[in-house]
Nucleic acid binder design. Structure first.
Length: 469
RNA sequence: GGUCCCAUCGUCUAGUCUGGCCUAGGACAUCGGCCUCUCACGCCGAAAACGGGGGUUCGAAUCCCCCUGGGAUCACCA
């Protein structure tokens, strides 16, 4: 059997963390089983849907690399199909017109609630519809005996008594079909074999199964994955940090790190924490999806991103980091040793934004000098050693990292200094900061001219300072 | 409130199905230390959990029941 899964968001906002994870699970399952993944936009709620959201969702999926094999399909373009099926249900006596007004329904609901009963539709229009009214909805007539069983891929067997379910609206008074109806028609018609979605849908599943049966369709397999909660155990919201996946792209998170973290939140493979996308595809299964809800932990996501930055080939990181450099006014793309610079930055950068920030000194003409670093390390006695370092670096040929180390040896020997004593001032002179990659590699990446120039500028600075005293 | 789901370190989790190998393992974060030209990486170590109560059993984190707690859902939203 060819597996077909889908992601069916409603376009009422951007692609958020929870939706992305649902999409990811479906995508992984399809890929793992060599099946197809379908994208469908559920935009039957006209008043809440908008095109901007559609684009935002597509954008988020592209960032994560969740490619779809079919679609996107839009429910708003399939209205005649739904009409066909809803009319069939009416003809077969499985759905009926309901003329109750919203006010009547609300009042009835309030009355039942007040009397401590459950608010279910009383089927007035099934038995004795009020005459003289035009406006109506269509209700699906639920069986009121027996039970509907969901054999869930993650939750196991879940039973619902049919008498707990009331007759739900499948077509609104304006003729628009509702979610529980369209989702069934589409999943059936699109040949979806596995529906993996948030467990907030578990309660809808028995009614959907009934609609499948009423329509003569075979229900797919369902897998209801636990939701992601925020740090306060409440449903994830803006308060818990960025929600949109593209916000993480802007912040410098690698898509493979996002997918790694997201899938690992609720799914596990022994003790393994770091997975490539290919590994995920290979190892993913609904068997080891956890049953309990998880809490979104931005700090672990940051660590996962860090791991992926460290483990990626430098050329990949170099390419991914380029926009982040450009954003802060540098263009390292033409720099002969850009990739080598990236290597020196990888293990100390948790995000691409951070990487660009801390590597900016490699690619700017003028470096900004940290006041504290200058005060602490560029003192009068450092003038001669730095001047000497500049001098021997200038004579170094070939200009290679080992040779650079040798130059430091010479300075240490001549001035009887430990490496720490000379390295820190050199670091400030060359990078403007007290924190940087290893000093030899910094010098090598910077090249002879820039290194010597910056060292001499620092020497001048020191002289100026001492003259002013 | 009804219905449904869930319950192992602060967090993500392994172990639960197929009881004994669990004095409960890993990871993030935290705290100590090592390495060291700074920062990081890396390494070593510490602290940290089976929600409670009953059963079943020679033996329960694991099976059963109750309680408690958390979550979801009860729309002419999806």
């Amino acid at each position: 059997m060819v597996v077909r899964t889908r992601f069916a968001p409603s376009p009422t906002g951007f692609l958020h963390i929870g939706g992305a994870r649902t999409a990811l699970f479906n995508w992984l399952y399809a890929k793992n089983r060599k099946g197809q993944f379908i994208l469908r936009i559920e935009d039957t709620d006209y008043s809440r849907s908008n095109e901007e959201s559609v684009n935002a969702i597509l954008d988020g999926m592209q960032y994560l690399g969740l490619t779809w094999d079919e679609g996107p399909f839009f429910q708003s373009e399939r209205l005649t199909i739904y009409r066909q099926y809803s009319e069939r249900l009416v003809d077969q006596g499985k759905a009926y017109r309901c003329f109750c007004t919203k006010e009547e329904l609300d009042a009835e609901r309030a009355r039942l609630l007040k009397e401590g009963q459950k608010p279910m539709y009383n089927r007035r229009c099934l038995h004795a519809p009020p005459g003289g009214r035009e406006e109506h909805v269509l209700r699906f007539q639920c069986p009121d005996e027996g039970e509907t069983v969901v054999e869930d891929l993650v939750k196991g067997t879940v039973r619902f008594k049919n008498q707990e379910l009331d007759d739900l609206v499948i077509v609104r008074s304006d003729g628009m079909p509702t979610y529980n109806f369209t989702v069934v028609v589409d999943d059936a018609l699109m040949g979806i074999t596995h529906v993996i979605r948030g467990d907030d849908h578990l309660n809808n599943t028995p009614r959907q199964i009934q609609i499948y049966h009423a329509l003569g369709f075979v229900p797919p397999l369902f897998g209801h994955v636990p939701m992601i909660l925020g740090s306060d155990r409440a449903r994830l919201s803006k308060r818990h940090g960025a929600l949109s996946v593209t916000a993480y792209r802007e912040a410098g998170y690698l898509p493979e790190a996002m997918t790694n973290y997201l899938v690992r939140l609720g799914w596990s493979f022994g003790d393994q924490e770091i997975f490539s996308v290919d590994e995920l595809v290979e190892k993913f299964s609904t068997d080891n999806i956890g049953k309990s809800s998880g809490t979104f932990n931005p700090e672990k996501l940051l660590w996962v991103n860090h791991q992926h930055i460290i483990n990626s080939p430098p050329e990949r990181i170099a390419r991914a980091a380029l926009p982040f450099f450009q954003r802060i006014g540098a263009d390292p793309s033409k720099h002969p040793r850009y990739e080598y610079a990236v290597i020196t930055l990888q293990e100390r950068s948790k995000t691409l934004a951070e990487l660009a920030e801390s590597g900016l000194f490699y690619f700017t003409e003028e470096i900004e000098m940290e006041e504290e670093g200058r005060k602490k390390f560029l003192k009068a006695d450092m003038g001669p050693p730095l001047a000497y370092l500049a001098e021997i670096l200038e004579d170094l040929d070939p200009f290679e990292e080992v040779g650079v180390a040798g130059c430091f040896e010479k300075v240490m020997k001549r001035f009887l200094m430990k490496l720490g004593k000379i390295a820190q001032p050199a670091r400030v002179a060359l990078t403007g900061k007290r924190v940087s990659p290893g000093i030899y590699e910094v010098i090598w990446v910077l090249g002879k001219d820039v290194s010597v120039g910056r060292l001499r500028r620092a020497v001048d600075l020191i002289r100026l300072d001492s003259e002013n005293l």
